[in-house]
């Protein structure tokens, strides 16, 4: 019981540190690496929430595909990493105040709401997910596949050479 709490606290620290580094560091390449650290933490958090399948999907899709695609894009365009953004102190302070205010409002809402806690027992299995995807959630499932097709075609059109694109 004790060890799970320690690991949970370490996970929270990893997630928040990774997120802060992903936002705060100046070099975009380090931002992408910190994003990977944060996503690993989120994947481990999904195991705490009883869903091993989503943890695996998080690692495969987010880390294996999305983060690697971002890193490829950074490396394909070399000057992207070397651009240093000039400091705009007023903007940073305004954004920090706004984000802190937003977090404060959210924290107030979370703390003051009486959440209707239901039973934690239930069917978390991959079998249940598959059944739901192909029965009650079949329409969103099909729409998602259409969106992915459109995204593939759109990315191909946008990144093809100039004379073919227009």
């Amino acid at each position: 019981m004790m060890i799970t709490e320690i690991v949970f606290a370490a996970l929270v620290i990893i997630i928040l540190t990774g997120a802060l580094l992903a936002v705060g560091l100046k070099n975009v390449f380090y931002n992408a690496l910190a994003l990977i650290l944060c996503l690993f933490g989120v994947a481990a958090l999904f195991i705490y929430l009883n869903s091993e399948f989503l943890a695996i999907m998080e690692v495969i899709v987010y880390i294996g595909a999305i983060s690697i695609a971002i890193i490829f894009a950074i490396m394909l365009s070399r000057p992207m990493t070397q651009k240093t953004e000039p400091e705009n102190r007023g903007k940073v302070i305004r954004s920090a105040v706004l984000s802190a205010l937003f977090f404060g409002v959210l924290a107030k809402v979370i703390a003051s709401t009486a959440w209707p806690i239901a039973s934690e027992q239930g069917d978390y299995s991959i079998k249940g997910i598959g059944k739901m995807l192909l029965s009650t959630q079949a329409l969103p499932f099909e729409v998602i596949s259409l969106i992915l097709l459109i995204a593939i075609i759109g990315a191909l059109v946008l990144s093809s050479p100039e004379d073919n694109a227009s």
Binding site: A19, V28, A73, L98, F102
Partner: peptide, 19 residues
């Protein structure tokens, strides 16, 4: 909520599109 706020801060401050 903390993760959302950090992300919001990043969207508001960074000017690099990848960031």
């Amino acid at each position: 909520a903390a993760l959302f706020s950090i992300g919001l801060f990043g969207v508001l401050t960074r000017r690099n599109l990848v960031a």
